[in-house]
Design a protein around this nucleic acid. Structure first.
Length: 266
DNA sequence: TGAATTGTTATCGT
DNA sequence: AACGATAACAATTC
């Protein structure tokens, strides 16, 4: 379940392998994952060099040398990895880029919720995203303004990528636990102090998760260590690490939601 | 077997 | 009408 820390980890691991490389081939096997189309993307990117690799929210962004962009969204089960030109191909392979020196970039995605998209203008793809939670544009005032501009349940609003980007189900539960806020409180009812706590909790949670290379729960994302440090997510019926009360699991907006009924009161 | 998972879109209700 | 909540959808694993 790649969220910001898992995407950031992927970008950091990939960066030196793809920066400066020229794209020689592109093949994909699942048309509905590719925008504008497989041949359209191939025409746009083959022959181009990768100038830079970055991340915006949960998007991996390839900056191409003609000023256009190739974006990869990992969805729920997507993975990007570089391999040699050798024989064995990974399972659930959906797309391959051929780079310099017979290097290959693989996109694997069991559930096919991932997306590959080429755009001339980055704003087409990321224009609707809110601020990066670890950037200076993500201020307490900005968060307060966004939460008070709407009247919504707090958790679903935080997971929309326009208030702040990069939060998914796991890290939203973690941040709410740290901030001691109930997932269902109304977004415009938060006091300044509560918004400050939430702001700090979001940043602390994401920084720690990046340091630990993200959360590895199942086969979908290996290599992370944050699963050992989670305070709420996946801990239903286990004692709260702050007060000992069993963690509750409920559904909020069709998503599994974990919180401490004693520490996080409505 | 069906629950779990994300982002987008459609639909229902106030 | 606008907005918030809810449901459906895509596809697969265990």
């Amino acid at each position: 379940m790649p969220e910001l820390p898992e995407v950031e980890t992927t970008v950091q691991k990939l960066r030196r392998r793809v920066t400066g490389q020229r794209i020689h081939r592109f093949r994909a096997s699942w048309p509905r994952q590719i925008s504008p189309s497989i041949t359209g993307v191939r025409r746009a990117i083959v022959g181009r060099k990768v100038k830079r690799l970055s991340r915006r929210g949960k998007y991996i962004v390839f900056h191409l040398d003609d000023g256009s962009f190739l974006l990869v969204h990992l969805g729920m089960s997507g993975m990007l990895a570089v391999g040699g030109g050798g024989g064995d191909r990974p399972s659930h392979l959906r797309a391959v880029w051929g780079l310099d020196g017979d290097q290959r970039l693989f996109f694997c995605d069991a559930r096919k919720f991932g997306r590959i998209r080429w755009v001339r203008d980055i704003k087409e793809a990321t224009g609707g995203l809110g601020p990066e939670p670890l950037s200076r544009s993500f201020t307490v005032a900005a968060l307060h303004g966004a939460l008070h501009a709407r009247s919504r349940q707090l958790k679903p609003l935080l997971m929309e990528q326009r208030v702040v980007c990069g939060l998914g189900n796991i890290y939203t539960d973690e941040a709410l636990f740290k901030a001691r806020l109930h997932p269902l409180v109304c977004s415009d009812s938060l006091t300044r102090a509560q918004v400050r706590r939430l702001h700090r909790a979001i940043q602390q949670t994401l920084r720690q998760a990046i340091r630990l290379c993200g959360t590895s729960f199942d086969w979908a994302y290996p290599g992370g260590r944050m699963q050992n440090r989670l305070l709420a997510y996946g801990r239903a019926k286990e004692p709260c690490k702050r007060c000992g009360t069993p963690i509750i699991r409920t559904l909020v907006g069709q998503r599994g939601t974990h919180f401490c009924p004693a520490c996080q009161r409505k």
